[in-house]
Design a protein around this nucleic acid. Structure first.
Length: 495
RNA sequence: GCCGCGUUCGUCUAGGGGUUUAGGACGCCGCCCUUUCACGGCGGUAACACGGGUUCAAAUCCCGUACGCGGUACCA
């Protein structure tokens, strides 16, 4: 293991940070922290046509929310900046030039149409995967086929060109992947990859290799979708005479229906795909992080719950699995429930006030709100559900749950009436859970009916629903006036 | 198609030649607690893709097959 571990998370700002990207960032971060190294954020904005204005802000905000701290990045540059590739444009130009001079790359002048024609022609003649390679480049328009003065003339005239990597005809390219072990590719299967695009921007491949070297990256930890292009990168490192960083390709996060978890698939399967969706929907960042850490990795013991700090000390690449991992939303919810219950009711009350759009809740008395949360916490999965389930603590039920209404029988009005009569004389200090329960028992005993015969109708009348926290404690919290009012309202509406 | 990478309960995984009647977690089911719903506790269901080797012994090593996934762009 090299000293001074430096890893990078290098998203391209073509959209919001999705859950797969977040996990890649997390694994990089955990690895860096485990080795006391640095976690670098680099923005790979080389595709101007796909650039999304707010994407970088979204990435930064998402990482921050998740608790992933960036040691060096556009917002807090270190000594190897700038950290946006668009601001490093000239650099790539210089390095492309070096490759041309050393013979590892060449100019190509073919237009998009000519390339399409070439591919079509080859396909028709029986080549199913046409490539711009050691063989086909001989029939294309480039500095390998054109006389040197012609090349210079085109360059001087400002003709559009790209720079392509001159992939050797037959060579076995091997490298060691920290997760997968030995990996090898035959160079003949590789394209003469475009390194510098006609708009002057580098492609991912060039920019990535140049930056990883210049930024002294020791470990490249990225998604498996990059495994196939790694040989091109190895070739590049060799051409530059640089030592390649260690490589580690992470298993992909899969959709429950199979295949890489994409935006479309996630949406149709009810899985939030972007980190901002998790923020907006009030998931617990600790839960998401814990869940994501275990999606493709495990510490090897039976533990399931860990803080970020613990994950940092536990995480090693050799314990990352090789196969894709299916996103299991129910397990995420299990984590969320766990971390939610860890939060004090006092803190939750503050969160609820922040989130809520209901004025009654926003202005609620804090001790009261906290008491309701004590009761609700064990019953919900996310903070926002606290308000849904606990709405009856603040507002009279507008309607009664249809399913619960089945428990409102023909004898319910009479029983409820008797209960009202029993509790109305109670003064404030007597209006507490124990007494309220005793009063209910009096009524059912007198009428010789079961507990539920009265309790369910009361619950419906007071909360509008057939489930929820202990009814007597809830009524105590609500107070006599509210309870009696709601019981009478129910009598009117359901009689 | 070609190239590459994978494959242990439904899902995430442990296990890496004998310690395994293959362990844990989520889910699901049942019971207990509770005259609601949950929490909690206890228990149950359920997997080594297939076929050949190697070996005294294979989930574990090797080779094939199947299946899955990824890549195959002047996208990353």
């Amino acid at each position: 293991m090299k000293d001074n571990v430096r890893v990078r998370f290098a998203p391209s700002p073509t959209g919001f940070l999705h859950i797969g990207g977040l996990r890649t960032a997390l694994y990089n971060y955990l690895f860096a922290r485990h080795h006391g190294g640095s976690f670098i954020l680099r923005i790979e904005d080389t595709d101007q046509s796909r650039y999304v204005e707010d994407a970088e802000k979204d990435i930064t905000k998402s990482l921050e929310w998740s608790g992933i701290e960036v040691d060096e990045g556009p917002g807090n540059p270190g000594s190897v900046g700038p950290y946006r590739q668009s601001e490093r444009k000239e650099l790539y130009h210089d390095y492309a030039q070096k490759l041309i001079e050393s013979g590892a790359a060449y100019y190509a002048f073919d237009t998009t149409e000519e390339l399409d024609q070439m591919r079509e022609r080859l396909q028709k003649s029986g080549n199913p995967s046409p490539k711009y390679d050691a063989i086909t480049r001989q029939s294309m328009i480039n500095s390998l086929t054109l006389p040197q003065d012609e090349v210079q003339k085109r360059l001087d005239a400002g003709d559009e060109y790209v720079v392509r990597l001159k992939v050797p005809r037959r060579e076995l390219i091997r490298f060691e992947d920290l997760i997968r072990g030995h990996v090898s590719f035959e160079s003949k299967g590789l394209d003469d990859q475009v390194l510098l695009k006609s708009d002057g921007m580098p492609t991912y491949h060039l920019a990535n290799v140049v930056d990883d070297h210049l930024m002294k990256i020791t470990h490249v930890i990225r998604g498996e979708e990059w495994l196939s292009s790694t040989p091109k990168h190895i070739l590049l490192y060799q051409a530059f005479g640089w030592e390649a960083p260690n490589m580690a390709h992470l298993p992909l996060i899969m959709s429950p229906s199979g295949g890489k978890l994409s935006k479309r698939k996630a949406e149709s399967e009810g899985i939030p795909i972007n980190t901002k969706d998790y923020i907006a929907n009030h998931y617990e960042p600790k839960a998401l992080i814990n869940f994501l850490a275990y999606l493709g990795w495990s510490p090897g013991d039976d533990s399931e719950l860990h803080t970020m700090q613990e994950l940092c000390s536990l995480f090693t690449l050799d314990r990352v699995s090789k196969g894709g991992a299916v996103f299991n939303h129910k397990k995420l919810m299990w984590y969320n429930e766990h971390y939610l219950r860890d939060i004090s009711s006092k803190k939750l009350a503050a969160r609820v006030k922040e989130i809520s759009t209901d004025e009654t809740i926003q202005n609620a008395d804090d001790p009261f709100l906290e008491k309701t949360i004590d009761l609700l916490k064990e019953r919900v999965s996310k903070v926002d559900e606290l308000m849904e389930m606990g709405d009856f603590f603040f507002n009279d039920p507008k309607e009664y749950d249809e399913k619960a209404l089945k428990k409102w029988k023909s004898d319910s009005p009479e029983l409820v009436k008797e209960y009202i009569e029993a509790i109305e004389p109670l003064d404030k200090s007597e209006f507490e859970a124990g007494t309220l329960k005793t009063k209910l028992e009096d009524v059912i005993n007198k009428n010789e009916v079961g507990f539920g015969k009265l309790m369910m109708p009361l619950r419906i009348a007071v909360t509008g629903q057939g489930f929820g926290p202990d009814l007597f404690t809830s009524m105590e919290l609500l107070g006599k006036d509210t309870v009696v009012r709601r019981l009478n309202t129910a009598l009117d509406r359901l009689a």
